[in-house]
Design a protein around this nucleic acid. Structure first.
Length: 208
DNA sequence: CGACCGATCGTCT
DNA sequence: GACGATCGGTCGA
C-alpha cells in the first residue's frame, strides 16, 4: 500500500487527477478509529476559469483561501448548513484546483461507518454522495486545510487495477449555475459500481 | 419511477 | 439577509 505523495497532487491537470483518483483508497484515522473506502466517484473543479468552482474569477475569500495553497491538503466546506463536502486540493500554490470526493465503497471500518451514518452495513448509500462520504469517514469542517501527507488522513494506492473501459465521464451534479461549464465532462465514476447512488448513476456522455 | 420540499448554518454581500 | 458542489422523505401518477 503506497500513500500518494506531494508530487501526485501537485500535477497541473486537475481533470486528469480526478479521473486517476478512481480506485484509490481514502483513509482516515481519527482517535484510533480507522476507516477506509475505495473512491468510486469524483468531480474536478478547474481553477479560476471554471464557473462551477468557488475560485471562479480568482475569487479569494476566507473560505476559498485553502484552495490556493499547494496541492496535498483537504478543502472541506459546509453545504446547505448540514453537509460537509470534502475536496482534494491539487496543483501548485495560487492555482486553486480541487477534486470533490463524491463516493466511496467501504473497505475498512464498516462498523464505524455504520455508527457514524446511522445506516445499515449493507446499505449501498453509506458512502454515496459527497455528504454521505464525509459522514462515513468522519470528515468535517474541522479538517479543512488538513494535510493529506500525514498518517491520520491520506489517499493510497493498493494495487487495485481499474480498467480504463470502466471509467466513465459525465457532467457534474448540482452546478446548473455554471452556465456552459455545467456540461463539461468533469465528473468521473466507476461504471456500474453499486456504491454510486442510483440517482446519479447514469448520465453517460463519454466512455473511453 | 419523478417532482418537490424541508432541514440548517457558515459564508459572503 | 440570502443562499447553497445535498439528502431523504413524501406525494402523485
Amino acid at each position: 500500500m503506497k500513500k500518494l505523495k506531494a508530487s501526485y497532487y501537485q500535477r497541473s491537470d486537475v481533470v486528469e487527477i480526478a479521473r486517476d483518483l478512481l480506485g484509490k483508497l481514502v483513509i482516515t484515522k481519527w482517535e484510533g478509529q480507522l476507516t477506509a473506502g475505495r473512491i468510486v466517484e469524483t468531480e474536478a473543479y478547474r481553477g479560476i476559469t471554471d464557473r462551477a468552482s468557488h475560485a471562479f474569477g480568482a475569487k479569494r475569500t476566507a473560505r476559498t483561501e485553502v484552495m490556493y495553497a499547494t496541492g496535498g491538503i483537504a478543502y472541506v466546506y459546509l453545504c446547505y448548513g448540514l453537509h460537509h463536502l470534502c475536496n482534494v486540493v491539487t496543483g501548485t500554490r495560487d492555482e486553486p484546483h480541487a477534486v470533490l470526493l463524491r463516493g466511496i465503497e467501504p473497505v475498512e471500518g464498516l462498523t464505524i461507518m455504520s455508527k457514524r451514518t446511522g445506516k445499515g452495513k449493507d446499505d449501498k448509500t453509506i458512502g454515496a454522495g459527497p455528504g454521505n462520504l464525509s459522514r462515513a469517514l468522519g470528515i468535517s469542517l474541522a479538517h479543512n486545510g488538513h494535510s493529506l501527507l500525514g498518517d491520520s488522513f491520506y489517499i493510497a494506492e493498493d494495487g487495485f487495477l481499474l480498467p480504463e473501459k470502466n471509467i466513465m465521464a459525465t457532467p457534474r451534479i448540482g452546478v446548473d449555475y455554471a452556465g456552459e461549464d455545467a456540461s463539461l465532462p468533469y465528473r468521473f465514476i466507476i461504471h456500474n459500481n453499486p456504491w454510486i447512488s442510483k440517482k446519479n448513476a447514469f448520465l453517460p456522455i463519454k466512455n473511453d
